[in-house]
Amino acid sequence: MVSKDNNNKKSEIDVGYVAKLARLALTADEIKRLGKQLNDILGYIGKLNNVDTAKVQPTSHVLPLKNVERTDKVVPSLRIEETLKNAPLKENSFFKVPKVIE
C-alpha cells in the first residue's frame, strides 16, 4: 500500500503499487526515476494546502450545463469489418484476448 500522509510529512508515492493499478509494467529503474520525479512534483503541488477551501464547492464541470440528453432512437451500428479492422487479434466476428480466468 501507499504510505499515508502523517503529520504534514511529505507523502511518498509508491510507484510500484500505483503501476499495478494502472497496468503498467515498469522496470526497477523506471520506478526509481519516476518515484523521484513524482515526489518532486507532489512536493510542488503540496502548496495547494495553503489555499483555504473549507467553504468552496469543487468545479468538475466548468460550464453550468445540466440535463443534456438524447432521445431513445436506434441508429445504425458499425459494419463488422469496420468494428474489427483495427483489432490486433480476432476470431470470426469476435475480439480475441488471452484466456480470462474466473
Binding site: V2, V18, L48, N49, T53, V56, Q57, T59, S60
Partner: peptide, 17 residues
Amino acid sequence: SSGYYDAYYLKALKVRT
C-alpha cells in the same frame, strides 16, 4: 486512488473554483 482523492483531486477541484 483510495485515500488520496480528497487530499489531491477534490482539493484541486476546489482550487479550480
